[in-house]
Nucleic acid binder design. Structure first.
Lengths: 207, 207
DNA sequence: TGGCGATACTTAACGTTGTTAAGTTCAGCA
DNA sequence: TGCTGAACTTAACAACGTTAAGTATCGCCA
């Protein structure tokens, strides 16, 4: 049955084309400026064709988003892992921030919009959950090895996440020429990571 | 010339009606679900009338947004100011978080969307700049009185802002049923404030 | 008092959006 | 050879922000 498989493959190709085109447009134009027609134009199909592969614009964006979460997970995992849990947290923070700053439009959609897709993201093996797990594991390790004060692991994970997310989201929302009164300070990412860690570290770990 | 003044007043009344209706719709429906036609319906005028008072939907939202920044400034200033700069920072953080959680849809627009209006927000006496100034002043005081380690005032202000903003924005973006893997932890706001402060405090201040 | 001009407001429309109903074309099986 | 079903398009829908063109009404000046 080579025919069915070829058809399957062709269908998958179109799907990929859609996703790739949407990804690029998304990145360059921003979410709310990308239209189904623009995506269709980019792949040289009619707009209707997209609906043969995705239920709706939201569904398309959800798929795109899940792929981004996978990239985020890789970005946070791929680096040579520092031995010290604290250095590992540091590296995680930097990787996360770099990802957000490099892909502001995707970041915006992943973390800064309501979106129906988040209801599907709860399950344990969805890409968003896996991304969270990377952070959580690092926190757990730091806590187990006595570097962080004992506390609810999820509370601390969310605390760390919130801190770095706050920096990234401000940076990509307020560009230097529009920040209220003063431009974002350089070194904000590093300073935030250090401040957060120092707030969480045990006294012994600070040394 | 009482007539001209009455007309002025009437015009202002309609403007207020538009703003109030938009504010309410905004709050209950969320930004992207509020249409000019819906606002027009709510005030029982035709959609076109809104354009006699506001150049565009963006301009209307900008006006709304500036009013919200004023409310935020009041919320952060109005409380009985604690003497200790550290307690003052704490109070500021709580007021800020409470505002965001109580008005998620406005918060979203104020701090989490791109929006043309931010370009007009740079000047020193715009409401957004004033809100930032409230925070900055508190940081400056804490630093002057030796509670915070000496550092760039704006860097520290933005650090603090980012930390609490991160918490608020995650809380209003990910509701309990859709948070990746685990629901937001209660006490996250408090924990974040404390962690941030402990990261910034001088050793003497912690003592 | 009656007509004039400006102001407030509406109706109807334009172009764009996401989405869908109704074809059309064509490859692969009988 | 003719048929089925999948892939794809054309044309349209309703809703959106916005605007051009028109109407009514109020206050002024003769």
């Amino acid at each position: 049955m080579g025919i069915a498989e070829r058809k399957e493959r062709e269908k998958e190709d179109v799907r990929r084309k859609i996703l790739d085109a949407a990804h690029d447009l998304f990145e360059t134009q921003g979410y709310e400026n990308v239209t189904m027609r623009a995506v269709a134009d980019a792949i040289e199909y009619s707009p209707t064709t997209i609906y043969l592969h995705f239920e709706s614009k939201d569904a398309l964006v959800e798929a795109l988003c899940f792929e981004d979460f996978e990239k985020l997970s890789s970005a946070m995992s791929a680096q040579p892992l520092p031995k010290s849990p604290v250095d590992r947290m540091r590296a995680l923070g930097h990787a996360y921030a770099a990802f957000g700053i490099a892909n502001p439009n995707h970041y915006r959609f992943m973390f800064m919009t309501a979106g129906e897709w988040k209801k599907h993201a709860r399950d344990e093996d969805t890409p968003p959950s896996k991304s969270y797990a990377v952070l959580r594991d690092a926190v757990e390790q730091a806590m187990n090895e006595g570097y962080f004060k004992k506390n609810d692991i999820d509370l601390v994970s969310q605390l760390v996440w919130a801190a770095i997310h706050g920096v990234v989201s401000l940076l990509i929302t307020f560009t230097p020429d529009q920040f209220p009164r003063v431009a974002p300070r350089p070194g904000l990412v590093e300073a935030s990571i250090e401040a957060t860690l120092h707030g969480l570290l045990t006294d012994e770990a600070k040394g």
